[in-house]
Design a binder for these strands. Structure first.
Lengths: 219, 219
DNA sequence: TCCTCTATACTTAGGGA
DNA sequence: GTCCCTAAGTATAGAGG
């Protein structure tokens, strides 16, 4: 009841500079990441904006947030309606890209099949989820999901790495004067490109009822 | 001096749902975008994280924030990406696409492997369930599978995008009727296409702190 | 690692220039 | 569109579980 009862210090003012204590830094990261994502989702809702965020934690873990209309964007992207269709250029490259897209679409379909399969398997307790999900849960990272995700994703690392190196090669060769890829090589752990992440993030899985995507790739 | 003097209402609580008044929405967008970017940059500085944000305003304007090493990227951007010769790059693009396709097929195969893996995991999960795994464990695994596939897809998409962006850069010289505003401190507004954006996002780096990059691409 | 708790720093709605 | 202003809603530092 007395004044001395106060045991919490409340919010302290802090300088905006690197937090030195590792544990504290981690906590701060966690909290602020959550806060950032939440703000982002609010922005989306309030203003009808689309937002994609990629965060690379100091531990080379990447977190992403995305909110939009999934299928539309993805479709547009696949059909190329978004970026280049307006161009009249009928170059060899375009043709090849056309093919590439085609293949890509095939792969996509495949993926969807997989999703279906998975959904079936998941059906059993799929309903559990719908019970306690608040709207904001949809926009923020589901922690347990994230944690488990991390573990599993490691198995995917190799794959990503392989893909990445290809991209690196392409990018490096293409942008000779552009050494961003190399700069990126901080620990041999190179995050996969987040280019067009914008589009990517925009594309949620239709398999779920979530309006936002939050993904975590362990790099 | 009187009580009636108070003319400001102060912060009102608002519902997180679309702001209907257009002007108000615009203002909110502006304010919150700023706030979001600011939070992002703080996160970068405080935790040594790297953040990239893309915001698509309802008016088709895209704003991006990035916290890496701005100068380099920007520089290369403005000089390289925009003015690159399509003639010179054509052949190179050709080769790269060739390789890309090759890899694409390879990735396809790997997808199959992943499918198998998925099945195994699905089975295993079934067993675990019988044992005493928590509901959320199962749940997570399930989502992991989905995420994995998505992730995979994402990788492929990026692969494709990386190439596409190059091609776009060549042909998109026409699309880029960019305006250019560079204030560079906390507000760099730079016009770029998505292909370029790709590079940019990639270019997360240890670089600076409080001065993140903010880009604005006109579409 | 994440959640809880508290006190308080920070953000921002609404209105005006 | 930006900036200012104020009041008050919100996010979060630090400590503990």
């Amino acid at each position: 009841m007395e004044a001395s009862k106060q045991k919490n210090k409340g919010l302290q003012k802090i300088e905006i500079k690197r937090v030195e204590r590792k544990s504290a830094r981690q906590v701060t990261f966690s909290k602020r990441k959550k806060g950032l994502f939440n703000k982002a989702s609010e922005l989306c809702v309030l203003c009808g904006a689309e937002v994609a965020i990629v965060i690379m934690s100091p531990h080379k873990r990447a977190f992403t947030f995305g909110h939009p209309n999934p299928d539309d964007v993805l479709d547009r992207f696949l059909t190329g309606a978004g970026a280049e269709s307006s161009l009249a250029a009928t170059t060899v490259e375009d043709e090849k890209l056309e093919r590439l897209k085609q293949e890509y679409v095939e792969l996509l379909n495949r993926l969807k099949e997989e999703e279906k399969k998975r959904d079936e398997i998941a059906k059993k307790r799929g309903n559990d989820r719908a019970n306690g999900v608040f709207w904001w849960d949809q926009y923020s990272i589901d922690d347990m999901e994230r944690d488990e995700l991390e573990l599993y994703l490691k198995s995917l690392e190799k794959l990503k790495t392989s893909v990445k190196s290809k991209v690196d090669e392409l990018a490096a060769a293409s942008v000779a004067s552009n050494n961003f890829v190399n700069q990126f090589n901080i620990d041999n752990n190179i995050p996969i490109d987040f280019g067009s992440e914008f589009d990517d993030l925009c594309c949620l899985l239709e398999g779920t009822n979530e309006d936002g995507i939050l993904r975590n790739l362990d790099l």
